[in-house]
Nucleic acid binder design. Sequence first.
DNA 1: GACCACTTGTACCGATCGGTAAAGGCGCGT
DNA 2: ACGCGCCTTTACCGATCGGTACAAGTGGTC
Lengths: 188, 188
Amino acid sequence: MITGRADAIPGLATAFRLHGYEGASLAAITRHTGLGKGSLYNFFPGGKEEMANAVLDEVGLWFETHVYRSLQNQDVPAAERLTSMAGAVEEYFSSRHLVCLYGSFALGQERERFAQQIAGYFTAWIQAITEALPGPAQEAEALATDFVATVQGALILARALDDPPVLHSTVARSLRHLTSLAGPDKAR
Amino acid sequence: MITGRADAIPGLATAFRLHGYEGASLAAITRHTGLGKGSLYNFFPGGKEEMANAVLDEVGLWFETHVYRSLQNQDVPAAERLTSMAGAVEEYFSSRHLVCLYGSFALGQERERFAQQIAGYFTAWIQAITEALPGPAQEAEALATDFVATVQGALILARALDDPPVLHSTVARSLRHLTSLAGPDKAR
DNA sequence: GACCACTTGTACCGATCGGTAAAGGCGCGT
DNA sequence: ACGCGCCTTTACCGATCGGTACAAGTGGTC
């Protein structure tokens, strides 16, 4: 255990995922974390905003170490890196109620409060994909943006239709647009 | 004026768009509609849930008359119908804070309460596009699903990056996937 | 065992939540 | 002018909101 905060973050994350930022009442947070208000305000004196910041940072760190970094691994062909990135992202959201916290926060009016972190998350993701793609940067960035948007939309659609497999099928098709550019020699 | 309800719906819609379902307090709703609580509960005895239902119905009706129906107009080539559909959708969300109410509701825990209407909205949209596309239905439905997901994701991305043009550029590229299938024989 | 820093439970705060009740205003048909 | 029905205002309800204060634990160090 590094800090008492760290143990609370998974519970905080599910609370924010299930209820959104504004909808996550302290009562719901104590339920999901198993911690009383006293403990929560001991670890996060800044209240709900600090809790949300800690969760966002943790999610951002996970993507940085598991997604962006492996996208830069030059020992593996680009198409393969992109495919494993897509798989990791699918698995991540599938086991987390099909909710991207950054996407959820971007939709609410809490967007302004966390604007920098939200924008930073998506630009980092898009940039990591862009750098793994060959060809002119402008075209690669467009493809990367389309992929990220499709993932976010597929999450919404999977929840809206109450049909989790929609995430995989949609992301798989979007991934093909990336790999067909990254691996023309590798394909077939 | 058909009913007193109708006049309140635009204000209700922006209230729900800006604050989400749970975040839209009655105080915020009175602010956006200019109506007091008494008037609101006179028009919507069922409270917030009935207000949200009325707004969702109105949005669904708009899409039905402006989007789905024009997609069925056989007098116009399919590619052109799809293009004007994309333009209408872009314009619709651009002038409404880049928020799709159904997408917003799908993300929160209010999803269960409005599950049927949410699922119905997206299936109707996907089906309308599917029927405007040639070729095997399964393939067309996949393309239609990708388009709808991309629109939803582009909305999130445009808000997340605080960059409204992202909606147009992303949707335009996604539209090309549809028209390239619909247009080769019909085009020109 | 005394001490101390950290953690926890509990009581409490003013503000706001969604919703209700009822009295008064208003326009309209007669 | 009158009565009637719809609409609006206003006051109020209990519950819950995010946040604070503080006393009582808790475990480790000498």
